[in-house]
Nucleic acid binder design. Structure first.
Length: 497
RNA sequence: GGCCCCAUCGUCUAGCGGUCAGGACAUCACCCUUUCAAGGUGAAUACACGAGUUCGAAUCUCGUUGGGGUCACCA
């Protein structure tokens, strides 16, 4: 077992955009494979025709690639174990379902969904747990032949043992014991000829030689069923690891797609991988953030790059407890990446497409100048538009009068301040129109006028940028240049007349 | 309801029989300061409860409570 190559897989259903919980599962699976120098496989589980959503596969692969979670085998990337889309493997499932039938491990069930509903209703009335009553389990050969001859639709069900126990081993929580009588005669092959997840994953994981099955915790209750299946086939079982579930930020209920776009305490709850991208988070920050949920790097470090995570990752050390989604930590981590892990040039590269998407024409030289100014101020990339978008506007949008007048100063006082500023700045020679000199004049104005820094610098900021939150005043003026800065100060003066 | 899983600051976590129960985010205060940030310093806050086992339990056992998951011809 130890010398066996580690092969893990991420097996999403193409039912829509990739969810952040799915990303987490994929990430841990990927980390496990990379840690052992093994292979990571992407398999598409599209056995439910009704839930298939066109374009989902691209959405899934796009999200994984944005995050840097690369797969060695998968759709369009054959590694000798394909096809990697379950709907293309139907004959295989049917063949092995037949094998189970032939070996008395499964049986045909002709019950209609109406009857199944009826059975459950009756059970509920008797306060019994719901479940199939095994009506078809002991059908005689003649009855089966008769039903078949009549062309009655049917499914194939597992013949689960009625007594005894099934013991599972989970890498994260150890031994898990189930009484066999609680295990259902689950449907393995549906009447449309498609397998259910139960059958499909066992067959695929066997033939794809998956060594570790990592999946979300909601699968733990069906683990015994899967174990029974492995035993029925007589195949060597993979190791299982059930990852803890991501709960909503308030800890109530699992984080689900239903909550996409919903807000909680006035904060939007992001749940789709794409939403994180659109919101301006860096992929490396998202990955780092996700690593810290349920797993601990050690050394009391929370910031680390993906290579370091691969080196240390240990699936057995994953915390078995579910966790509330600590979304507020993402802002912090994202900030660290933007100001400490990225150089100004790299940050500028990421900022450019965002400004362009906002409809701004980006002058690269100017962008390079303002990037250092916004670097410590951005929470997410998209903040740059509001904070520094004015640098790229064709026309200047002047502030309102209210924005211009600071606390403890009236209209006249503000205008006088601006007039004095205009006079001083006009006197500076063009080549000296640089931050230190501008700052100097600023402080001179403060003492001359008997005001404080905040008032003087604040008024200038608003006058020059047209907004009250912006890049620092004097650096901004330097970038804007002498004539543009003076022009804007004059506009403000006129506004106050 | 049955079954299964889980339980350390508000949150993410470290801890695996002897620790002043550590770190981080968030919060608050102070410093720095041209708005906003960033940075610095400091504060406050946790072993769900009850029985055992033990010289000694956050750590082991059982129970209670609480939370979560799951009981489909969905995955």
């Amino acid at each position: 077992m130890t010398e066996k190559i580690v092969r893990t897989r991420f097996a999403p259903s193409p039912t829509g955009p990739l969810h952040i919980g799915g990303v987490r599962s994929a990430l841990f699976s990927w980390l496990l494979a990379r840690h052992h120098g093994g292979k990571f496989v992407l398999r598409i589980e599209d056995t439910d025709q009704k839930r298939f959503v066109e374009g989902s596969i691209d959405l899934i692969t796009d999200a994984l690639s944005w995050l840097g979670i690369d797969y060695d085998e998968g759709p369009g990337k054959d590694g000798g174990y394909g096809p990697y889309i379950q709907s293309e493997r139907l004959p295989l499932y049917q063949k092995w379902a037949q094998w189970l039938l032939d070996n008395d491990k499964a049986y045909r069930c002709f019950c209609t969904s109406e009857r199944l509903e009826q059975v459950n209703k009756e059970k509920e009335a008797r306060k019994e747990p719901p479940g199939y009553d095994r009506f078809c389990r002991n059908l005689s050969k003649d009855e089966i032949e008769k039903n078949l001859a009549e062309g009655k639709p049917h499914v194939i069900r597992l013949k689960a043992p009625l007594e005894g126990q099934t013991i599972g081993h989970d890498l994260i929580r150890g031994e898990v014991i189930f009484d066999n009588h609680t295990i259902q005669d689950a449907v393995l092959l549906k009447s449309d000829g498609y397998p259910t997840y139960h059958l499909a994953h066992v067959i695929d994981d066997h033939f794809m030689e998956i060594s570790h099955v990592t999946r979300a915790n909601e699968w733990l209750p069906s683990l015994p069923l899967h174990l029974l299946l492995w035993e029925a086939f007589g195949w060597e079982k993979p190791l299982y690891a059930h990852l803890p579930v991501l709960l909503n930020p308030n800890g109530k209920g699992k984080l689900s797609k239903r909550h996409s776009g919903f807000s909680e305490d006035g904060k939007k709850v992001l749940v789709l991988a794409k939403e994180f991208k659109d919101a301006g988070y860096l992929p490396e920050a998202v990955v780092n953030f996700l690593c810290n949920i349920g797993w601990n790097f050690g050394d009391e470090r929370e910031i680390f790059d993906i290579q370091e995570a691969i080196e240390r990752f240990d699936i057995g050390a994953v915390n078995p407890a579910n966790s509330a989604f600590p979304i507020e930590k993402l802002d912090w981590i994202n900030g660290i990446y933007m100001r400490e892990k990225l150089s100004a040039n790299e940050l500028a590269k990421r900022l450019r497409p965002i400004l362009e998407e906002a409809g701004l024409e980006v002058n690269v030289d100017r962008l390079l100048k303002i990037t250092p100014l916004v670097q410590t101020r951005l929470k997410v990339l998209t903040d740059v538009v509001a904070m520094a978008g004015f640098f790229f506007h064709e026309t200047f949008t002047p502030p309102t009068v209210e924005m211009l007048i600071p606390k403890k100063l009236d209209k006249d006082g503000t205008r006088k301040l601006l007039e004095a500023s205009h006079k001083h700045y006009l006197a500076i020679a063009e080549p000296e129109f640089l931050t230190p000199a501008l700052m100097n004049i600023g402080t001179t104005l403060v003492s001359d006028l008997g005001l404080n820094n905040s008032q003087v610098f604040g008024v200038l900021r608003v006058a020059v940028t047209g907004q009250s939150i912006s890049t620092p005043t004097f650096e901004t003026m330097e970038i804007l240049g002498k004539s543009e800065s003076l022009k804007r100060i004059q506009i403000a003066i006129d506004l106050l007349k």
